[in-house]
Design a protein around this nucleic acid. Structure first.
Length: 398
DNA sequence: TCTGGGGTCCTAGGACCC
DNA sequence: TCTGGGGTCCTAGGACCC
């Protein structure tokens, strides 16, 4: 039996959610009706557009571009800072509502879900009518709009929800692929980004249909193993399942862009202290231990490079993460001016015992207990309750 | 006042072992 | 003195997504 997959995508999610939240708290102006964007803070060099209203889009504002350039296109542009707690709340509300329709649901990102609706016709009736009903109910209940794509697999459902926006239902069933998908420019295909599309255009493959009918040998010459995968996708073929469980993270990372380029090692190390606390807290919350620690550096020319270390014994304390990050900086930093620093943890294990290495110094057991006690305090009273002494800025001249 | 942050997956190349 | 190949693990970098 053919599968029936829904892909539900919130229209301009971050901006819509912010608008709805403000209206709920007494604001009368709806951000969705004026040129507005969600954007960072230029003073700290986070000045890019991360979401935009439809009127802003009509003025040619794209994601992600600099706020500077966006303001040139629209001098009166309203810029609102991101508020992730708000996004999380509305994302959860939507997810809980969608769970009413199937247990077979996958959260694909903060604003997208896949629903496997195969065989639900007896329960809910015609899938297309159901999609319209869901779309309207979401609007009534929560105040924001969604697009719903319906297809026989996840890839096509996702492509369909991307067709015309906002507040629309589209189908892209197997027998509609030629007519609805093959005419689209190659850039529209999922997983074809800037680099791939440039190569494809260069060999005169301009539409998804061109790629669907392309020579496999030529594709493999340019894209190696992913060449045949590209052709498969262009043909709308995708066997992947809707994964109802929440997939565990493969990595946990945090990054900070500095307000100015860092040339002093101690300044970089200071950020490592903050980052170690962040990733360490998240790691322990998952109950993980990490076997690989990676530092990420981006220099003033926007080149990113990294160094990593694989450990014999998985770790989970801030101190251990911090210490390794410092070592990696010693080995890896090219002494160039640094714009962004990050720490990534990966290769997780859930074992809560430590494999004793012959050469490991015997550590006092209490260290981990202290860490857990600190996490609990932070959870209860906020993350500012405990900060490392070196993060406290010394006031000039005092 | 120029360019975020959090992820996943893939690949090339080197080290090392048999 | 010169000549291998295969397999695995690890590291660094890059493409892509939201």
């Amino acid at each position: 039996m053919d599968r029936i997959i829904f892909h539900i995508d919130v229209n301009n999610a971050f901006l819509s959610w912010t608008a709805v939240d403000r209206l709920k708290h007494g604001e009368t102006l709806d951000l969705r009706t004026i040129p507005s964007v969600i954007g960072g803070d230029e003073a700290t060099r986070n000045g890019i557009v991360i979401a935009k209203s439809t009127p802003a889009k009509k003025l040619g504002i794209v994601t992600p571009e600099t706020l500077y350039s966006a303001r040139r296109k629209c001098p009166g542009l309203v810029v609102v800072r991101p508020t992730h707690e708000v996004y999380k709340k509305y994302s959860n509300d939507l997810y809980e509502y969608l769970c009413n329709f199937t247990p077979n649901i996958e959260r694909f990102s903060i604003d997208e879900c896949f629903l496997d609706m195969t065989g639900t016709k007896n329960l809910f009736g015609d899938p297309i009518e159901l999609a319209y009903k869901i779309k309207e109910e979401v609007k009534d209940k929560f105040g924001f709009t969604v697009n719903i794509g319906i297809a026989n697999n996840k890839l096509c459902a996702k492509m369909a929800s991307d067709f015309e926006k906002p507040d629309k239902v589209h189908t892209l069933f197997d027998n509609e692929i030629k007519e609805k998908m093959w005419l689209l420019p190659i850039e529209e295909l999922f997983m074809v980004g800037k680099k791939s599309s440039a190569i494809l255009r260069n060999i005169n493959i301009n539409t998804i249909g061109d790629l669907a009918n392309a020579d496999q040998a030529i594709q493999e010459r340019y894209f190696k193993n992913s060449g045949s995968l590209l052709i498969t996708r262009a043909n709308g073929i995708d066997d992947s399942e809707v994964e109802e469980y929440v997939a565990k993270n493969q990595s946990i990372s945090n990054e900070i862009t500095s307000a100015y380029d860092l040339t002093n090692k101690n300044e970089i190390i200071k950020l490592f202290l903050q980052l170690s606390n962040q990733v360490g807290t998240r790691l322990r919350k998952e109950g993980f231990h990490a076997r690989v620690v990676t530092i990420i550096l981006k220099n003033s020319s926007f080149q990113t490079y990294s160094h990593q270390q694989k450990l014999v014994n998985p770790i989970d304390t801030n101190e251990e993460i911090y210490k390794i990050a410092k070592d990696l900086l010693e080995k890896g930093w090219k002494n160039d001016p640094i714009r962004l620093v990050g720490i990534r943890l990966s290769n997780f294990s859930v074992e809560n015992y430590k494999q004793m290495s012959l050469f490991d110094e015997v550590k006092p057991i209490s260290n981990e207990n202290i860490q857990k006690a600190m996490d609990n305090l932070k959870e209860k009273y906020g993350s500012n309750i405990i900060i490392n002494a070196s993060l406290l800025e010394k006031k000039e001249g005092k």
